[in-house]
Amino acid sequence: MMHFIGSIFLLISSFLIEVLVFIYLVTNIVHLIFSTAFIIDYGVSCGFCTLEAIPVVITLLFSIYFWLVAFSYWRRLRWENNPENDD
């Protein structure tokens, strides 16, 4: 649920301020931590059922990619709003 709220904030941030992108980055990191813990726990308890773990691993890979995209967007926003970079 927290990741969903962070995703909504990321969508809204294209219209508002860079703080919402930062909220998305934090919630996505929490999502990555809990998903990784889940897949490790599931792998230990089930003898690593590969077919059932593949969607979680794919979701983790997409989350990492989207986090990197949002992070680069956040850094660009910070650069654009920095008064020292004013041309």
Score class of each variant (00 low, 15 high):
residue 15 F to Y: 13
residue 54 I to W: 12
residue 2 M to A: 15
residue 48 F to M: 02
residue 59 T to K: 03
residue 33 I to M: 11
residue 23 I to L: 14
residue 75 R to Y: 09
residue 60 L to T: 04
residue 51 L to D: 06
residue 19 V to N: 08
residue 32 L to D: 04
residue 67 W to V: 01
residue 86 D to M: 13
residue 39 I to W: 06
residue 50 T to C: 04
residue 30 V to N: 01
residue 23 I to G: 04
residue 58 I to T: 05
residue 68 L to Y: 11
residue 65 Y to A: 08
residue 75 R to K: 15
residue 29 I to F: 14
residue 36 T to N: 08
residue 2 M to S: 13
residue 85 N to M: 03
residue 5 I to L: 15
residue 9 F to Y: 13
residue 46 C to P: 00
residue 79 W to Q: 02
residue 25 L to P: 00
residue 38 F to E: 05
residue 68 L to Q: 07
residue 3 H to E: 07
residue 1 M to F: 10
residue 38 F to S: 01
residue 29 I to V: 15
residue 37 A to V: 15
residue 67 W to C: 02
residue 74 W to T: 02
residue 25 L to T: 07
residue 64 I to V: 15
residue 52 E to Y: 13
residue 31 H to S: 09
residue 86 D to I: 14
residue 49 C to F: 10
residue 38 F to P: 00
residue 81 N to Q: 08
residue 10 L to F: 13
residue 62 F to V: 12
residue 39 I to E: 05
residue 64 I to D: 03
residue 19 V to Q: 11
residue 39 I to C: 00
residue 1 M to H: 13
residue 27 T to E: 09
residue 34 F to G: 07
residue 54 I to Q: 04
residue 28 N to E: 11
residue 77 L to E: 03
residue 60 L to K: 04
residue 47 G to C: 06
residue 37 A to G: 12
residue 55 P to A: 05
residue 86 D to C: 09
residue 15 F to P: 02
residue 20 L to D: 03
residue 40 I to S: 05
residue 61 L to D: 01
